[in-house]
Amino acid sequence: MKPAPALAEGFPDLSGMRVAREPHWFRWFSAALIVLVLAAIARAFANGQIEWSYVSRFLTVKVILEGIVNTMVMAVLAMALGIVLGIVVAIMRLSPNPVLKTVAAGYTWLFRGTPLILQLLLWFNLALVFPTIGIPGLWSARAVDVMTPFLAALLGLGINQGAYTSEVMRAGMLSVDIGQYEAAQAIGMGRLRALRRIVLPQAMRVVIPPLGNEFIGMVKATSLASVIQYPELLHNAENIYYANSRVIELLIVAGLWYLLVVSILTPLQMLLERRFARGTLRLAR
C-alpha cells in the first residue's frame, strides 16, 4: 500500500484557535431602544386618565368571574362540537361517495364564507323564520324557548368552528403516508376502521398545533356571543360600564382576564403536542 501523499504548503493549522464571540452591537442598541419605548408607553398609561382603582376593584367581582366561567364553558363545548363536526366532515370530504363529498364541501363553503357574528345573529333570531320547531308528530316547541343565548352561541360557534376544523383535519389525514392506509387495508380493515385506528391517531400529531391555536381563538371568539346576550366575560364587563361609564377600566379588566387565560393555555398546548408525538423521536418545534 502506498503511503499517504504529503499535504500541500500554505494552509496553516487552525485547530488551536477558537472563534471569537461577536459583539452584536446592533442587537444591544435595538434592545435598549425597545426598552425605552416600552417604558414611555408604561409611563403614558400610568399618567393617562385611567382610574386604576376601578380596574382593581372590578377585577375579581362576582359578575366578572361568572363571565370567565361562562366564556370557558362555551369555548370548550363549542370547540368539542367543532372537532366532532370537523372530523365527520373531513371524512366525508375524503370519501369516494360524490354526494358526501359535495355536502361536505358545501358545508365548509357556507360556514367559512359568512362572518361568525352574522351566523350568531341568525341562530339567535331563528324564530323570525321558524316560530315553531320540532319533529312532526313527536315533539314541537317554540323556537325562542329552545334557542336560548347559550344554545345559539353553542351552535353558532361550534358549527362555524367545524368548517375550519374540517380543513385542518383533512390536511392532517392527507399528511399521513398512504402506505399506512394500505397496510391497514392489507390486514383486512375497512375504510372507516382504518381511519379511526390508524390514520386519525397519526393525523392528530399534525393536527394538534393548529387545533390548539384554534381553541385559543375560540376563547376570544366567544366574546362575539355578547351581542346575543350570552353572559360571557365581555358581555358582563359591558354591563358594568353601561352602568358606571368606566369604559376603558372595564375593558382593561376583561382584557387582562383574556390574556391570563391564553397565557395558561399556550404551555398546555405544548404538553399536548408532546403526548401525541409518542412513538416518534422528532418533536415538531
Binding site: 333570531n125 324564530a127 323570525l128 316560530p131 317554540r142 323556537a143 325562542v144
Partner: peptide, 8 residues
C-alpha cells in the same frame, strides 16, 4: 323589537 316579535 325582534325579540318581542319572536315571543322571547
Amino acid at each position: 323589537r325582534n325579540q318581542l316579535k319572536q315571543g322571547r
